[in-house]
Protein backbone atom coordinates (compact mmCIF):
# COMPACT_ATOMS: atom_id res chain seq x y z
CA UNK A 1 0.00 0.00 0.00
CA UNK A 2 1.56 3.28 -1.11
CA UNK A 3 0.98 6.67 0.41
CA UNK A 4 2.15 9.69 2.38
CA UNK A 5 2.94 9.95 6.05
CA UNK A 6 1.93 13.02 8.06
CA UNK A 7 3.31 13.55 11.55
CA UNK A 8 2.25 16.24 14.00
CA UNK A 9 4.25 16.20 17.22
CA UNK A 10 2.49 18.64 19.51
CA UNK A 11 3.31 19.70 23.03
CA UNK A 12 0.60 17.50 24.53
CA UNK A 13 -0.37 15.00 21.83
CA UNK A 14 1.24 13.30 18.85
CA UNK A 15 -0.75 12.66 15.69
CA UNK A 16 0.23 10.37 12.81
CA UNK A 17 -1.75 9.83 9.61
CA UNK A 18 -1.17 7.80 6.50
CA UNK A 19 -2.81 9.08 3.31
CA UNK A 20 -3.31 7.31 0.01
CA UNK A 21 -1.82 8.77 -3.17
CA UNK A 22 -5.11 10.61 -3.68
CA UNK A 23 -5.16 12.00 -0.17
CA UNK A 24 -7.69 9.67 1.46
CA UNK A 25 -7.07 8.76 5.08
CA UNK A 26 -5.98 5.13 5.35
CA UNK A 27 -4.75 5.14 8.93
CA UNK A 28 -4.52 7.62 11.78
CA UNK A 29 -3.69 7.83 15.43
CA UNK A 30 -3.95 10.45 18.15
CA UNK A 31 -2.06 9.86 21.36
CA UNK A 32 -0.62 11.71 24.33
CA UNK A 33 3.01 12.74 23.94
CA UNK A 34 3.50 12.32 27.70
CA UNK A 35 6.81 14.17 27.49
CA UNK A 36 8.32 11.29 25.50
CA UNK A 37 7.95 12.29 21.85
CA UNK A 38 10.51 9.78 20.58
CA UNK A 39 8.94 6.78 22.24
CA UNK A 40 5.41 7.81 21.23
CA UNK A 41 6.48 8.28 17.62
CA UNK A 42 8.22 4.93 17.60
CA UNK A 43 5.20 3.10 18.96
CA UNK A 44 2.78 4.90 16.61
CA UNK A 45 4.87 4.01 13.59
CA UNK A 46 5.35 0.44 14.65
CA UNK A 47 1.54 0.14 14.97
CA UNK A 48 1.16 1.59 11.49
CA UNK A 49 3.71 -0.82 10.10
CA UNK A 50 2.08 -3.86 11.67
CA UNK A 51 -1.39 -2.93 10.54
CA UNK A 52 -0.76 -1.81 6.96
CA UNK A 53 2.86 -2.61 6.02
CA UNK A 54 2.80 0.54 3.85
CA UNK A 55 5.26 1.91 1.33
CA UNK A 56 6.03 5.51 2.21
CA UNK A 57 6.38 7.86 -0.76
CA UNK A 58 6.87 11.04 1.26
CA UNK A 59 6.80 12.38 4.79
CA UNK A 60 5.55 15.70 6.15
CA UNK A 61 6.23 16.81 9.71
CA UNK A 62 4.60 19.61 11.67
CA UNK A 63 3.89 20.66 15.25
CA UNK A 64 6.20 22.15 17.84
CA UNK A 65 8.23 18.91 17.77
CA UNK A 66 8.57 18.88 13.97
CA UNK A 67 12.34 19.38 14.20
CA UNK A 68 12.74 16.31 16.36
CA UNK A 69 10.39 14.27 14.20
CA UNK A 70 12.12 15.19 10.97
CA UNK A 71 15.55 14.36 12.38
CA UNK A 72 14.37 11.04 13.70
CA UNK A 73 12.48 9.65 10.76
CA UNK A 74 13.60 11.78 7.84
CA UNK A 75 10.91 14.18 6.59
CA UNK A 76 10.62 15.60 3.08
CA UNK A 77 8.55 18.59 4.17
CA UNK A 78 8.86 20.29 7.55
CA UNK A 79 6.11 22.87 7.92
CA UNK A 80 4.69 25.05 10.65
CA UNK A 81 1.28 24.26 12.13
CA UNK A 82 -0.49 27.21 10.55
CA UNK A 83 0.21 26.20 6.96
CA UNK A 84 -0.54 22.55 7.75
CA UNK A 85 -3.89 23.29 9.39
CA UNK A 86 -4.90 25.61 6.59
CA UNK A 87 -3.99 23.11 3.86
CA UNK A 88 -6.01 20.36 5.54
CA UNK A 89 -9.00 22.63 6.17
CA UNK A 90 -9.09 23.79 2.55
CA UNK A 91 -9.02 20.18 1.39
CA UNK A 92 -12.25 19.33 3.23
CA UNK A 93 -13.94 22.73 3.11
CA UNK A 94 -12.69 24.54 -0.02
CA UNK A 95 -14.67 27.68 0.85
CA UNK A 96 -13.44 27.95 4.47
CA UNK A 97 -12.84 31.57 5.55
CA UNK A 98 -11.76 31.24 9.17
CA UNK A 99 -10.01 28.56 11.21
CA UNK A 100 -10.05 28.54 14.99
CA UNK A 101 -7.42 26.12 16.20
CA UNK A 102 -6.88 25.43 19.89
CA UNK A 103 -4.27 22.87 20.81
CA UNK A 104 -2.35 21.85 23.89
CA UNK A 105 -0.20 24.93 24.33
CA UNK A 106 -0.91 27.00 21.25
CA UNK A 107 -3.97 28.69 19.95
CA UNK A 108 -4.26 30.08 16.46
CA UNK A 109 -6.65 32.06 14.38
CA UNK A 110 -6.22 31.73 10.62
CA UNK A 111 -8.04 33.85 8.07
CA UNK A 112 -8.41 32.41 4.58
CA UNK A 113 -9.75 34.06 1.46
CA UNK A 114 -9.95 32.33 -1.92
CA UNK A 115 -8.15 29.29 -0.59
CA UNK A 116 -5.07 31.21 0.60
CA UNK A 117 -4.05 32.23 4.13
CA UNK A 118 -4.20 36.02 4.29
CA UNK A 119 -3.70 36.62 8.00
CA UNK A 120 -3.12 34.71 11.19
CA UNK A 121 -2.44 35.27 14.84
CA UNK A 122 -1.14 33.08 17.60
CA UNK A 123 -1.35 33.28 21.36
CA UNK A 124 1.41 35.11 23.17
CA UNK A 125 4.01 33.27 25.24
CA UNK A 126 1.53 32.33 27.95
CA UNK A 127 -0.50 29.14 27.51
CA UNK A 128 -3.66 30.62 29.05
CA UNK A 129 -6.57 30.02 26.73
CA UNK A 130 -5.36 26.65 25.45
CA UNK A 131 -5.88 22.98 26.15
CA UNK A 132 -3.36 23.06 28.99
CA UNK A 133 -5.49 25.61 30.78
CA UNK A 134 -8.53 23.35 30.53
CA UNK A 135 -6.63 20.28 31.58
CA UNK A 136 -5.20 22.04 34.60
CA UNK A 137 -8.59 23.33 35.73
CA UNK A 138 -10.24 19.96 35.10
CA UNK A 139 -7.75 18.24 37.35
CA UNK A 140 -8.44 20.85 40.04
CA UNK A 141 -12.11 19.91 39.88
CA UNK A 142 -11.25 16.23 39.99
CA UNK A 143 -12.52 15.67 36.43
CA UNK A 144 -11.02 14.29 33.29
CA UNK A 145 -10.61 16.88 30.55
CA UNK A 146 -12.82 14.79 28.24
CA UNK A 147 -15.75 15.18 30.63
CA UNK A 148 -15.74 18.97 30.67
CA UNK A 149 -17.69 19.44 27.44
CA UNK A 150 -20.72 17.37 28.40
CA UNK A 151 -20.84 18.85 31.89
CA UNK A 152 -20.69 22.40 30.53
CA UNK A 153 -23.67 21.77 28.25
CA UNK A 154 -25.86 21.13 31.30
CA UNK A 155 -25.20 24.54 32.84
CA UNK A 156 -28.11 26.86 33.51
CA UNK A 157 -26.25 30.09 34.34
CA UNK A 158 -22.49 29.98 33.76
CA UNK A 159 -20.44 31.83 36.39
CA UNK A 160 -17.92 34.50 35.38
CA UNK A 161 -14.32 33.41 35.73
CA UNK A 162 -11.20 35.38 34.83
CA UNK A 163 -9.50 33.61 31.94
CA UNK A 164 -6.52 35.93 31.58
CA UNK A 165 -4.28 33.74 33.66
CA UNK A 166 -4.54 30.21 35.07
CA UNK A 167 -3.55 31.42 38.50
CA UNK A 168 -6.34 34.01 38.61
CA UNK A 169 -8.80 31.55 37.08
CA UNK A 170 -7.98 29.07 39.79
CA UNK A 171 -8.57 31.49 42.64
CA UNK A 172 -11.78 32.66 40.97
CA UNK A 173 -12.92 29.09 40.63
CA UNK A 174 -12.21 28.19 44.24
CA UNK A 175 -14.09 31.27 45.32
CA UNK A 176 -17.13 30.34 43.20
CA UNK A 177 -17.08 26.81 44.58
CA UNK A 178 -17.08 28.17 48.11
CA UNK A 179 -19.97 30.47 47.29
CA UNK A 180 -21.93 27.36 46.41
CA UNK A 181 -22.20 27.49 42.61
CA UNK A 182 -22.76 24.08 41.07
CA UNK A 183 -20.18 22.22 39.04
CA UNK A 184 -21.97 22.61 35.68
CA UNK A 185 -22.10 26.38 35.97
CA UNK A 186 -18.45 26.57 36.98
CA UNK A 187 -17.31 24.36 34.10
CA UNK A 188 -19.40 26.36 31.63
CA UNK A 189 -17.85 29.49 33.13
CA UNK A 190 -14.43 28.02 32.44
CA UNK A 191 -15.33 27.45 28.79
CA UNK A 192 -16.60 31.01 28.48
CA UNK A 193 -13.38 32.27 30.10
CA UNK A 194 -11.22 30.36 27.64
CA UNK A 195 -13.19 31.63 24.67
CA UNK A 196 -13.11 35.21 25.92
CA UNK A 197 -9.39 34.96 26.43
CA UNK A 198 -8.90 33.46 22.98
CA UNK A 199 -10.93 36.14 21.23
CA UNK A 200 -9.40 39.01 23.20
CA UNK A 201 -5.97 37.75 22.43
CA UNK A 202 -6.23 36.73 18.82
CA UNK A 203 -9.23 38.15 17.03
CA UNK A 204 -9.06 41.83 17.89
CA UNK A 205 -10.33 43.78 14.93
CA UNK A 206 -10.21 40.79 12.58
CA UNK A 207 -13.06 39.92 10.27
CA UNK A 208 -14.16 36.39 11.19
CA UNK A 209 -16.31 35.30 8.26
CA UNK A 210 -18.23 32.07 7.91
CA UNK A 211 -17.66 29.18 7.33
CA UNK A 212 -15.66 28.99 10.54
CA UNK A 213 -13.88 25.72 11.30
CA UNK A 214 -12.87 24.70 14.80
CA UNK A 215 -9.83 22.39 14.86
CA UNK A 216 -7.34 21.01 17.35
CA UNK A 217 -7.83 18.78 20.36
CA UNK A 218 -9.96 21.30 22.25
CA UNK A 219 -12.62 21.11 19.52
CA UNK A 220 -13.66 17.80 21.15
CA UNK A 221 -15.13 19.94 23.93
CA UNK A 222 -18.71 20.86 23.02
CA UNK A 223 -18.78 23.40 25.82
CA UNK A 224 -16.10 25.46 24.08
CA UNK A 225 -17.86 25.16 20.74
CA UNK A 226 -21.10 26.41 22.31
CA UNK A 227 -19.29 29.29 24.04
CA UNK A 228 -17.63 30.27 20.76
CA UNK A 229 -20.97 30.28 18.96
CA UNK A 230 -22.53 32.32 21.75
CA UNK A 231 -19.72 34.87 21.73
CA UNK A 232 -19.39 35.21 17.93
CA UNK A 233 -23.10 34.73 17.17
CA UNK A 234 -22.00 32.59 14.24
CA UNK A 235 -22.12 28.91 13.40
CA UNK A 236 -19.00 26.91 14.21
CA UNK A 237 -18.20 23.76 12.23
CA UNK A 238 -16.10 21.01 13.74
CA UNK A 239 -14.56 18.91 10.95
CA UNK A 240 -14.72 15.14 11.28
CA UNK A 241 -10.96 14.85 11.68
CA UNK A 242 -10.58 17.98 13.84
CA UNK A 243 -7.89 16.50 16.09
CA UNK A 244 -5.55 15.27 13.35
CA UNK A 245 -5.90 18.11 10.85
CA UNK A 246 -2.29 19.23 11.39
CA UNK A 247 -0.94 15.79 10.51
CA UNK A 248 -3.28 15.54 7.50
CA UNK A 249 -2.03 18.92 6.31
CA UNK A 250 1.59 17.84 6.67
CA UNK A 251 0.94 14.69 4.63
CA UNK A 252 -0.92 16.72 1.99
CA UNK A 253 2.03 19.10 1.76
CA UNK A 254 4.34 16.13 1.18
CA UNK A 255 1.93 14.89 -1.49
CA UNK A 256 1.72 18.36 -3.06
CA UNK A 257 5.49 18.75 -3.49
CA UNK A 258 5.81 15.54 -5.52
CA UNK A 259 8.72 14.00 -3.70
CA UNK A 260 10.94 11.99 -6.05
CA UNK A 261 12.99 10.07 -3.51
CA UNK A 262 11.77 10.27 0.04
CA UNK A 263 14.13 10.99 2.94
CA UNK A 264 12.14 8.55 5.07
CA UNK A 265 14.58 6.43 7.03
CA UNK A 266 12.35 3.38 6.99
CA UNK A 267 10.37 1.59 9.64
CA UNK A 268 13.31 -0.37 10.93
CA UNK A 269 14.66 2.50 13.01
CA UNK A 270 11.72 2.06 15.36
CA UNK A 271 12.95 -1.15 16.79
CA UNK A 272 16.14 0.66 17.80
CA UNK A 273 16.79 2.04 21.24
CA UNK A 274 16.90 5.79 20.73
CA UNK A 275 18.00 8.15 23.46
CA UNK A 276 17.75 11.92 23.32
CA UNK A 277 19.84 14.29 25.38
CA UNK A 278 20.96 17.88 25.34
CA UNK A 279 23.95 19.94 26.31
CA UNK A 280 25.06 23.54 26.22
CA UNK A 281 27.93 24.17 23.84
CA UNK A 282 30.74 26.21 25.41
CA UNK A 283 32.44 27.15 22.15
CA UNK A 284 31.36 30.78 22.33
CA UNK A 285 29.43 33.05 24.71
CA UNK A 286 26.13 32.25 22.96
CA UNK A 287 26.03 28.87 24.75
CA UNK A 288 23.47 27.36 22.37
CA UNK A 289 21.46 24.43 23.68
CA UNK A 290 22.25 21.47 21.43
CA UNK A 291 19.87 18.50 21.13
CA UNK A 292 21.23 15.10 20.35
CA UNK A 293 19.65 11.76 19.51
CA UNK A 294 21.69 8.59 19.85
CA UNK A 295 21.03 5.12 18.52
CA UNK A 296 23.05 3.06 20.95
CA UNK A 297 26.47 4.74 20.85
CA UNK A 298 26.02 6.33 17.47
CA UNK A 299 24.85 9.94 17.24
CA UNK A 300 22.15 10.04 14.57
CA UNK A 301 21.04 13.67 14.83
CA UNK A 302 22.07 16.94 16.40
CA UNK A 303 20.44 20.33 16.12
CA UNK A 304 19.88 23.62 17.94
CA UNK A 305 23.29 25.24 17.41
CA UNK A 306 23.43 28.57 15.63
CA UNK A 307 26.77 28.09 13.90
CA UNK A 308 26.38 24.53 12.63
CA UNK A 309 29.39 23.25 14.57
CA UNK A 310 27.42 20.28 15.94
CA UNK A 311 24.57 19.83 13.48
CA UNK A 312 26.96 19.51 10.54
CA UNK A 313 28.78 16.58 12.11
CA UNK A 314 25.94 14.07 11.79
Amino acid sequence: MQGYLGIDVGSVTTKVVFLSKKGAILWSTYRKTMGQPIWVLQSALSDLYHELTPTVLGVGATGSGRGLASHLIGADVVKNEITSHAVAAIRYYPDVQTIVEIGGQDSKLILIRDGVVIDFSMNTVCAAGTGSFLEHQASRLGLRVEELGTIALNATSPVRIAGRCTVFAESDMIHKQQMGHNLEDIVAGLCDALVRNYLNNLSRGKDLREPILFQGGVAANHGIKTSLEKELKKEILVPKYFSIMGAIGAALLALECEVKATKFKGFRIFSHHLISSSFYCDGCPNTCGVMEVRDGNEVIARWGDNCGKWSSTT
Binding site: N80, I82, V116, T124, G289
Partner: peptide
Protein backbone atom coordinates in the same frame (compact mmCIF):
# COMPACT_ATOMS: atom_id res chain seq x y z
CA UNK B 1 6.92 40.83 20.90
CA UNK B 2 10.28 39.76 22.15
CA UNK B 3 11.23 39.15 25.74
CA UNK B 4 13.63 37.04 27.75
CA UNK B 5 12.53 33.62 26.52
CA UNK B 6 15.45 31.51 25.41
CA UNK B 7 13.65 29.03 23.21
CA UNK B 8 13.06 30.44 19.76
CA UNK B 9 10.63 27.74 18.60
CA UNK B 10 7.57 29.97 18.95
CA UNK B 11 9.25 32.75 17.04
CA UNK B 12 10.32 30.43 14.24
CA UNK B 13 6.82 29.00 13.84
CA UNK B 14 5.40 32.50 13.44
CA UNK B 15 8.04 33.64 10.98
CA UNK B 16 7.82 30.45 8.97
CA UNK B 17 4.03 30.73 8.78
CA UNK B 18 4.32 34.38 7.79
CA UNK B 19 6.76 33.64 4.97
CA UNK B 20 4.66 30.66 3.86
CA UNK B 21 1.60 32.86 3.76
CA UNK B 22 3.29 35.32 1.39
CA UNK B 23 4.83 32.61 -0.77
CA UNK B 24 1.64 30.60 -1.16
CA UNK B 25 -0.26 33.76 -1.97
CA UNK B 26 2.06 34.38 -4.91
CA UNK B 27 1.93 30.77 -5.92
CA UNK B 28 -1.87 30.43 -6.01
CA UNK B 29 -2.98 33.89 -7.10
Amino acid sequence: SIDEHLSDAGLQTRIEAFVDMIERKFKYN
